[in-house]
Design a protein around this nucleic acid. Structure first.
Length: 270
DNA sequence: ACAGTAACCTGTTTGC
DNA sequence: TGCAAACAGGTTACTG
């Protein structure tokens, strides 16, 4: 599910409800996620206040008066703000409790993670190797072009590589490549600087547009209030194999690149 | 350093 | 209709 727009939607949705609030407790119903939820989590969190809710890549960073709760939504995770008394359902693995509210983590596939750290987040093992944020000024066509030198991987794999740029998952990689007219299979080192400028721009545009719509809900992404994201209706190619290309009308193609389904137009994307 | 694959887990869709 | 295989928004870890 969640790529950068979905995580950002979640961040901005939960922040106003919990910022400044004091944590009164936690509930762990299933600790076996991508990594186990630390079993001493509650003693670190209880009584502390939420100072800020930030995001780095697809990680949500719940900054406390001391230390940070790191949450990743994996493939199928979501967070909701609910009244404390709400009965948990299946796959509701974790609650962060406040006086009257509860921040509830739901994740059927359990690829998500809930971790705790007291070190500066930028130094954390999962975060320190990450590339720039795609919506930051340092992410440019020139930067991408440089990263591509000496790399023969498909350009789609390059832009989905978190060491190169974060937050671009399968949906938005497909969309941005279509909008740039670049074939997803093209070797990264065989694309001009100009085309990389276009690509960097389209990545920024599509992510920003998706954030505006509250992300993309394909099956189960929920915003913090339980509503879906509305960007799915604006997707041009993702999941649309066989349908006419919005540019030329030729049927869109589907192909696996690096174990992921890729959707593209063989005529408009070269 | 790079490229490719398997692994984590559950639910839904597809194909025989 | 039933069952098994394939596939799904992510990322690490391992292999060659």
């Amino acid at each position: 599910m969640p790529e950068l727009p979905e995580v950002e939607t979640t961040r901005s949705g939960i922040a106003p409800h919990i910022t400044g609030q004091q944590i009164t407790g936690t509930v762990i119903r299933q600790s076996q996620l991508r990594w186990p939820i630390p079993n001493d989590l509650e003693q670190h969190l209880k009584g502390r206040k939420i100072r800020a809710v930030e995001r780095r890549a697809k990680y949500l960073l719940i900054k406390l008066t001391q230390g940070t709760l790191i949450i990743h939504l994996g493939m199928s995770g979501s967070l909701r703000i609910l009244p404390r008394s709400t009965e948990p359902g299946k796959h509701d693995h974790f609650d962060l409790l406040f006086k009257t509210l509860c921040l509830r983590f739901h994740d059927p596939r359990r690829f998500g993670a809930i971790l705790w750290t007291t070190e500066p987040v930028a130094d954390h093992k999962l975060i320190k190797h990450l590339g720039p944020e795609p919506l930051s000024p340092e992410f440019t066509g020139d930067y991408l072009h440089k990263q591509a030198q000496g790399r023969s991987v498909a350009v789609k794999n390059l832009i989905m590589d978190g060491k190169v740029v974060v937050g671009v998952g399968n949906i938005y990689a497909n969309e941005a490549l279509f909008r740039s007219g670049i074939n997803p299979s093209r070797a990264a080192n065989r694309i001009s600087a100009d085309r990389y400028s276009q690509l960097a721009e389209e990545i920024k545009q599509v992510l920003a547009a998706a954030i505006k719509r509250g992300g993309t809900t394909l099956r189960d992404f929920q915003q913090e209030d339980g509503k879906p994201g509305y960007f799915a209706q604006e997707l041009l190619v993702y999941g649309k194999a066989g349908e006419p290309c919005p540019g030329c009308g030729e049927p869109l193609k589907q192909k696996r690149i690096g174990q992921r389904s890729s959707f593209y137009c063989g005529k408009c994307q070269r």
